[in-house]
Nucleic acid binder design. Structure first.
Lengths: 107, 107
DNA sequence: TAGTTAATCAACCCATAGGTTGAATATGCC
DNA sequence: GGCATATTCAACCTATGGGTTGATTAACTA
């Protein structure tokens, strides 16, 4: 699978996005990450593996802990991709703006 | 499934992203969209349904044709989400910048 | 009315995703 | 060495995704 697909796919799960949000506040171990979720530790471990494969997190080794860190680098690619379409959602506002200016002049 | 997940999920397929790129150049019918792809028309039809459910395209009715139009609105949500993490990939550059400035002063 | 074209529906196949439970592997602590 | 803790591995289950082929629906055309 290509990188962008892998990243989008990793982001398509709310649990994984929540994990990223958690890691945005700082490094955390698997148990710490898993704590707020109503799923098993193993399930969280799997999510972490998906995030790791997508390059969104990196993992260290400290004794029996595997501290996870956010790596936002792949999100740059997402930002670049989405920027290509920016004009399409702004256009709408431009059109609205044009329309409002037009009726303003007319009345 | 929440909207953001649905959108990310829809974007996680290269064929679907290619369809969006095609529609960025203008409206097209299902057959026109399907033409460049090495998969069946039905498969493309399914992809279009996924994109439609995610709100990324809208479809009209003109005789037996179903012209598809890009609707980039949901991508705003993606842009907003990813922007939250922007500082994390920029930080890295800041750190690099700081580092470069530092060694420059040192030598 | 019959035939062609556009698109969808339906049934099916296989691989993968997300979850489970239970066992295994390290590592630190007495 | 023996035990607790942190994490992963393995096997399994079920649902879904992306693809196929064949049949169906709807609209134009001769």
């Amino acid at each position: 699978m290509d990188r962008l697909s892998e990243v989008f796919s990793a982001l398509a799960d709310p649990t994984r996005r929540a994990i990223l949000a958690r890691l945005a506040e700082g490094e955390a171990t698997v148990n710490q990450i898993a704590e707020p979720f109503p799923i098993s530790l193993q399930a969280v471990s799997k999510h972490l593996k998906v995030l790791e494969r997508a390059g969104l997190i990196t993992r260290g080794i400290q004794a029996q802990w595997r501290p996870c860190r956010l790596d936002a680098a792949p999100l740059r690619g997402v930002a670049e991709w989405v920027t290509e379409y920016q004009r399409f959602w702004e256009e709408r506002y431009d059109e609205l703006g044009t329309y409002l200016t037009k009726i303003q002049k007319e009345n």
